[in-house]
Design a protein around this nucleic acid. Structure first.
Lengths: 332, 332
DNA sequence: CTGAAAGCGCTAACAA
DNA sequence: TTGTTAGCGCTTTCAG
């Protein structure tokens, strides 16, 4: 059923119907007529033709590297909360960590398929920059900071610094670190930097053997912990870039009979659910992921209304949650 | 830039351009001309007008109750994997557990805004049935079983039965249960049924005080565990409908000094990440959530090609993973 | 194989 | 306030 057909049934003109669903510049009689016909037929206007005319899709493209991640689903949660309240729908693209797919999605969105894009990126290649600079719809980048673009991100460096300092302040002097690739500026580089800043401030240094680069998962954390503990001299505290990695370390320690926090303290960033219930509960930095999503969406909305030429970066604060793995309370 | 403008630049007709992006009934010269122009201009056809003409959106609506759930994100992961491979995009609607919003989304999708719908429902009201029966696009229901509709679901009853039996077979004789609302036929009713079937088979009964209805989260599990243990006679095993609930129970036991599995065994359904690393690792039934998503998407795709009038239900199997909370291996 | 022209379902400008 | 008419950008006949 299309608008003409429906208009005929309702006994009004196409325009009247169109007005009913839009500005509503309409007399009450016509309005009643239309409402009655809707009751009977269940008609609702097709969105595609609407978009074709209006040149507005009421759709926001959200590009994510994966979905099965606690942090990412919280971000998307925040995004959807704000966007749906404003009548926008989410076009979700899951790139499965495939950079090419990420680029392809951006290109897909480049023109007029969506009104705006929120990109949860992990790394930025040359191609990213090139495609991003050519976008014709507003883009907001979430979780990372990229000069010249609207961003919502976290205080990764400070969080890593605070966690490391917390352990060193308790008298630990042989720190180790398991980070992730520097290509990821937020979870990688910034957290490395924060760790090293705290270490330097304490007048300590970190032997090569005490630094490992892991993947974003528990198994990788386990493996890297095994490496670190394989030598004669053992660390007395470990900073991990992500909670998942820390979970792997915790698992290794448990199996190897290494006591946490007595023998080694552990702290990491993310505040995953698991950390609250792990056999040794995890000291972590809570990043406000949902707030990240909410703010990214709001920023996009603002951009949609009046595209400022000056780009903004919003950096969200964090909270240290001390639990058992650094000698804090076991149940927080 | 629109098709006419682009056609002029490329030096061909609108139709030629249209053909290039569609059936490709085109000579090589024209094709080359167009490709060159694309290089220069970065033109890509707008999807809305395309949809308006074709009456196909290449969009699938996915309705979910919440996003911040491990199981749901796994399902959506599976859905997106299959769908994007087939060139479909996901229109994600997060209802935040609001039944009205769920209905509203269905109505929104009812007509021609999406090519199909995958619904991750938790409960079915009268209104659901009424709206669902009026849908004009194919619908697949995931995670629940609803007569007369295409469904992909789990063997919830059997999983609950198997877990309960596992504990009873180890000699436990005072079973307790913390379930969720019967309104949820899968996580609620079916799992209650499975629990009681095992109990009945063992010739046991369950005192009223040993049955609790919790919400879908850890805090609720904690609270209900406190209730159950407040009496003089204590249970020696507890079946929980979800892992989150079980985590709360585990937390309670830890604080109350109740030993798991010595004093009380615990088992639940879901295989959340947390269960692997909890202070007592959790015996659980692994449900194939991602597979659920994959199959729901495939089913929808099939329906899109040739809408069968006969509806199907696909019931997925499960796997029992025994860990510490029932005396199994602590690290699986 | 090609381009002109009509059509998709909707919105928007206009005169009444 | 209304209906008519022209347009939105794309696809699809239909002659040639």
């Amino acid at each position: 059923m299309n608008i003409s057909e429906f208009a005929k049934i309702a006994g009004v003109s196409k325009s009247a119907v169109s007005r009913y669903f839009n500005d509503g510049y309409l007399s009450d009689d016509k309005r009643a007529l239309i409402e009655k016909a809707i009751e009977e037929t269940g008609y609702s206007p097709g969105i595609s033709a609407h978009s074709a005319s209006k040149r507005v899709t009421k759709l926001v493209g959200v590009i994510i590297p994966k979905l099965s991640s606690e942090s990412i689903s919280r971000v998307v949660d925040g995004i959807s909360e704000v966007l749906t309240a404003e009548g926008f729908d989410l076009l979700l693209v899951n790139t499965s960590n495939d950079v090419n797919k990420e680029i392809a999605s951006l290109e897909l969105f480049r023109n007029k398929h969506v009104d705006g894009v929120i990109l949860l990126a992990s790394i930025f290649t040359e191609t990213h920059l090139s495609v991003l600079s050519k976008m014709k719809v507003p883009v907001v980048i979430a979780g990372q900071q990229l000069k010249g673009f609207n961003c919502v991100c976290h205080s990764d460096e400070n969080a890593a610094y605070a966690l490391t300092k917390l352990m060193l302040d308790k008298g630990r002097s042989k720190p180790a670190v398991i980070g992730v690739t520097h290509d990821d500026l937020a979870a990688g580089k910034a957290r490395w930097d924060g760790f090293y800043r705290a270490v330097a401030e304490a007048g300590l240094s970190v032997p090569r053997r005490f630094t490992e680069v892991a993947l974003f998962n528990m198994d990788s954390g386990y493996e890297k912990a095994a490496n670190i503990f394989s030598g004669n001299v053992k660390p007395d505290c470990i900073f991990c870039a992500t909670d998942n990695i820390a979970m792997g370390v915790l698992l290794y320690c448990r199996e190897a009979g290494i006591k946490v926090p007595e023998d080694v303290m552990i702290a990491s960033v993310g505040d995953n659910r698991s950390g609250r219930v792990a056999y040794t509960t995890l000291t972590t930095a809570h990043l406000h992921y949902k707030t990240e999503g909410i703010n990214a969406a709001r920023m996009l909305l603002r951009e949609l209304k009046s595209s400022d030429m000056v780009t903004k970066t919003l950096q969200l604060d964090f909270e240290i949650i001390e639990r058992g793995s650094t000698g804090g309370c076991e149940t927080v």
